[in-house]
């Protein structure tokens, strides 16, 4: 899980072009939106795409998306659950 969190942090920085942010600037429980990293709805679309393209996780339900994208740990848990469910 920790390796996945580390990788996800790097993926987020790259996908969102967070030029002045490094992985150590935020932890797994830092809120991604509004406070914390201060991301917005356009970033949310990019993160949904990241989850789908790189990790094969498709989240259709808007409520679930909101829950999964609240922080890096929630994203990692979603990916692990998806892997466990789909082998």
């Amino acid at each position: 899980m920790e390796d996945l969190i580390k990788q996800l942090k790097q993926d987020i920085i790259e996908a969102l072009s967070l030029e002045d942010v490094v992985a150590d600037d935020f932890d797994a429980d830092t809120p991604l939106f509004v406070e914390g990293l201060g991301l917005d709805s356009i970033d949310a679309l990019e993160l949904i795409l990241l989850m789908e393209r790189k990790y094969g996780v498709k989240i259709e339900d808007p409520k679930e998306r909101r829950n999964v994208l609240r922080n890096v740990r929630a994203m990692a848990e979603c990916i692990v659950n998806h892997r466990n469910t789909n082998g």
């Binding site: 356009i42 679309l45 990019e46 795409l49 789908e52 393209r53």
Partner: peptide, 9 residues
């Protein structure tokens, strides 16, 4: 299919 948002915008 799905594409990134920003390059499109």
């Amino acid at each position: 299919h799905v594409t990134s948002v920003l390059p499109f915008i």
